Computed example of a mutant assay.
Amino acid sequence: MRVLLKKRVLLVLLLALITILFLKSDWLAEWMYPVHYKDDIRASAANYGVEPHLVAAIIRSETNYQTGKDSKKGALGLMQIMPDTANWVVQKAGFAEVTEDMLRHRADVSIEVGAWYLKSLDQQFDQNKIAAVAAYNAGPGNVRKWLDSGVWDGTIDTVQQIPFGETRHYVQRVFYYYNKYKDLYPSF
């Protein structure tokens, strides 16, 4: 009887120790919320004055850091840029030629184009990064229409008023990851 009691006590203590390690462990959180391509994200974010945490959150939401992805709607690469949008960015930013294959398979190219586009959206929406993220998903014309007509005020508190369910969930998901990354990687 005593041996069985000792084994149970040891088992409970071991489980408690494992639980504490998992709950208080940064390594577990970093394992669950990794950031790949950190150098490329940092460089592109710095080039255009956008937050690297936000770029990482968009990548996580779009492709979970997997290159070579094409969406059902035709968006390409790590940051899921539509080909027409990519062509517009390349022209406006004065980048060298960017092919669809480069967008699809080269993380550095996708991140550079996506970060530039995010900065452009941020400027279009007067540094309202919530509206910029919504526009990244739904297009700037739709978001401008929602803001101008009073359908949505551009804040995270009223995200439920975004008419497109996909965009509403996208904004929530991006800012969930954004906040996680800011907590986990403060010096990113």
Rank of each mutant, 00 (worst) to 15 (best):
Leu54Phe: 04
Leu54Gly: 11
Leu54Ala: 05
Ile58Tyr: 07
Arg60Gln: 14
Arg60Ala: 15
Glu62Arg: 04
Thr63Lys: 06
Tyr65Ser: 01
Tyr65Cys: 01
Gly68Ala: 08
Gly68Trp: 13
Ser71Val: 11
Gly74Ala: 08
Gly74Cys: 09
Ala75His: 02
Met79Gln: 00
Met79Tyr: 03
Gln80Leu: 11
Ile81Ser: 03
Asn87Lys: 14
Val90Gln: 13
Lys92Met: 09
Ala93Val: 09
Ala93Asn: 09
Ala96Arg: 14
Glu97Asn: 13
Thr99Phe: 02
Leu103Asp: 01
Arg104Gly: 05
His105Ala: 04
His105Ser: 15
Arg106Glu: 15
Arg106Leu: 14
Asp108Phe: 13
Ser110Asp: 08
Ile111Gly: 07
Glu112Lys: 15
Gly114Glu: 07
Ala115Leu: 09
Ala115Val: 09
Tyr117Glu: 08
Tyr117Gln: 04
Leu118Ser: 01
Lys119Cys: 07
Lys119Thr: 02
Ser120Phe: 14
Ser120Trp: 15
Gln124Pro: 00
Phe125Ile: 06
Gln127Met: 11
Gln127Gly: 02
Ala134Ile: 09
Ala134Cys: 12
Tyr136Glu: 00
Asn137Phe: 11
Gly139Asn: 06
Pro140Glu: 15
Pro140Ser: 13
Arg144Gln: 12
Ser149Pro: 00
Ser149Asp: 12
Gly150Arg: 06
Trp152Asp: 00
Trp152Asn: 01
Asp153Trp: 06
Thr155Ile: 08
Ile156Pro: 01
Asp157Lys: 12
Asp157Trp: 04
Thr158Arg: 13
Val159Met: 11
Pro163Asp: 01
Pro163Cys: 04
Gly165His: 11
His169Val: 10
Asn179Ser: 14
Asn179Glu: 15
